[in-house]
Nucleic acid binder design. Structure first.
Lengths: 353, 353
DNA sequence: CTGAAAGCGCTTACAG
DNA sequence: CTGAAAGCGCTTACAG
């Protein structure tokens, strides 16, 4: 039915080998012959069959992307970043959402054999990360995203949650805050733990002797509300709350508004991620911006790096989040003048449906 | 290197044909043999090579998704909807963003040969839609999304912009508005035209004799601001403005706020799409909600329909948008009491990174 | 129920 | 520079 390389060969009066060479630019072909072949191919509207090509050349020019989920801004940004690099290198993207379940993740990864040249995998929970060990064929190049490698031999990229949290605490301290509470994320989440660790370490470094105060949360807005309520109920409410992500920080804002507290007048609030909502709430949220698209792009670049460099075990690239100062803790209690505020370059709303 | 079907056959003491049958569940295999084969396959950690499978079976169990872009909520929702159906049917998704350019779209479509069993294509501009004619191999099943089929023979799905616009105008009229202006979208965009057409027709039907008033826009917020300004400068400012999408409606809100007009007190504003921002602006925006994930899901279901039903030329499925009444035109000038307001089921903010 | 064999559409050493 | 041939790893009539 469809036109194959044989048809082109016959029509051009050459062997299929020559057609293959002419089309792929591999091996040498007499200029006149090449031109004739290309002409015929074009006339016949010939397109190589990719499965056949993949089978014999053992390259698919496709990379697999295995994600826990396809919900929300985080994943769309990640995909966009990966897609951008992929396009630039003529690669295709095979997308698979594993839905968090370890079994499904395994199936998704298995189905990649013979379909992709490498995979980008994100399994942010401990369970997902652990199950990776058995699923990832050792021969398949892979880069982990926001995922702790159970065996420590895969290259990975992630957000520097530790450094980001330290930077935020430093900022709060520099603004004059002394009683800085932290609302943590889920304990089985790597990022959440890194941010907590950053908070603790920087607090110890910047305000030695001041005890940390941590209220548990689960990254959801509601848990931020509950944490804020508990903080207010305590004997000595903090003068600043740093939440492990924006969703919880926004929960804090709501709780404080309800309690009649002025933010940042009575209490400052800071988040992490810079989700689109962050700049829209009142007051707008001070937060650490994470460039998610860059995270994806970085992962793919690492995957594409020639073996021996990136393939070296455990290479790690980390994306540094950026402090974005907005109204929710726009305040200076300290004697020294503050540096200029960072402008929040608001992402433009897209004009499409 | 990797273990193949031959290895399994040898180890199990059967032919490769039997291994193939046992694994695929096609053709009959003695239960005892099947079990032995499956055992060996498991023990050897055998995974079929998909390219080989695709080449001989002529099925890839993959569907291609060709989009103009990967930016923003619209595409992430679309992908999510498609992905959901795909997962349910054991299909993979090959993602390609054509970046609006007709040439790139052609390349993307070509590269799909031998990689997918069918494609979902979105080319919302006239140029993109036109160029589709030459790129789509007639043998490749395809469903168009939000795209006018240049040849009218492909099944397609789209948003019922016409019906949605009529519903909104009907709502505005029922609320007592009489001078309803419309801010239109780009003239080369199919959706934009449908919404405009709905506005005109419903106005003619509901308020016979009242002349339509259309200010051009381009779907961007700024163009909404400009359109609103022009409307206010006219001799008889309208008492309601219906913008062809939310971004422009939000532009109108800003312009009116700046001009010192109360919304909805002095003038009502309505949009289309229900983007996440719509419920966060002040006042919250009355709009037509489009279920984009469902649009994607619907497209894939249509693609998967057995030939003869969906493959019938020009089958069309249309997603009906839903009226969401919020503060921006929460008002009743009419003598009759209004029905209960639609609750705005706000999408929950995700709690991850 | 099972196997031998052809074939899917390419690429790639190997000769010439 | 070019062609004949083997081979990539499967599936699928075709016999038995």
């Amino acid at each position: 039915m469809a036109v194959t390389i044989k048809d082109v060969a016959r029509e051009a009066g050459v062997s299929v080998a020559t057609v293959s060479r002419a089309i792929n630019g591999q091996g040498s072909v007499a200029p006149a012959v090449r031109e004739r072949v290309l002409d015929v191919a074009h006339r016949l509207d010939y397109t190589p069959h990719q499965a056949a090509r993949a089978l014999s050349s053992r390259r698919t020019h496709t990379i697999g992307v295995v994600l826990p989920d396809l919900h929300g801004e985080f994943f769309s940004e990640l995909i966009r970043g990966i897609g951008q690099v992929a396009r630039g290198r003529g690669l295709h993207m095979l997308l698979s959402s594993a839905h968090g379940d370890a079994g499904e993740q395994r199936v998704a990864l298995q189905a990649m054999r013979g379909r992709v040249d490498g995979v980008l995998v994100m399994a942010p929970t401990d369970e997902g990360a652990r199950s990776l060990a058995g699923c990832l064929a050792p021969a398949l190049p892979a880069v982990l995203i926001n995922t702790v490698d159970p065996e420590g031999r895969r290259p990975w990229v992630g957000v520097d949650g530790y450094g980001g949290a330290r930077a935020m605490v430093r900022h709060l301290v520099a603004s004059g805050h002394r009683a800085i509470a932290f609302v943590s994320g889920p304990g089985d989440n790597h990022d959440a733990r890194e941010r907590l660790r950053g908070y603790r370490d920087e607090l110890a470094a910047s305000l030695p002797g001041v005890a940390p105060r941590v209220e548990p949360g689960d990254f959801d807005e509601d848990s931020g509300i509950r944490a804020a309520t508990r903080l207010l109920d305590g004997d000595e409410p903090p003068d600043a709350v740093f939440a492990a992500n924006d969703a919880m920080a926004i929960g804090c804002l709501r709780a404080f508004a309800e309690a009649g507290l002025a933010v940042p007048g009575d209490i400052a609030v800071a988040g992490f991620d810079d989700i689109p909502l962050a700049r829209l709430v009142h007051p707008a949220l001070t937060t650490m911006r994470v460039d998610i698209a860059e995270l994806g792009a970085c992962a793919l670049r690492l995957l594409l790096q020639p073996a021996g460099s990136a393939d070296a075990e455990g290479v790690a690239r980390t994306i540094a989040p950026q402090l974005v100062v907005r109204g929710s803790c726009l305040r200076d209690r300290s004697p020294r003048p503050r540096a200029a505020l960072h402008a929040s370059t608001a992402p433009r709303e897209r004009g499409t449906p």
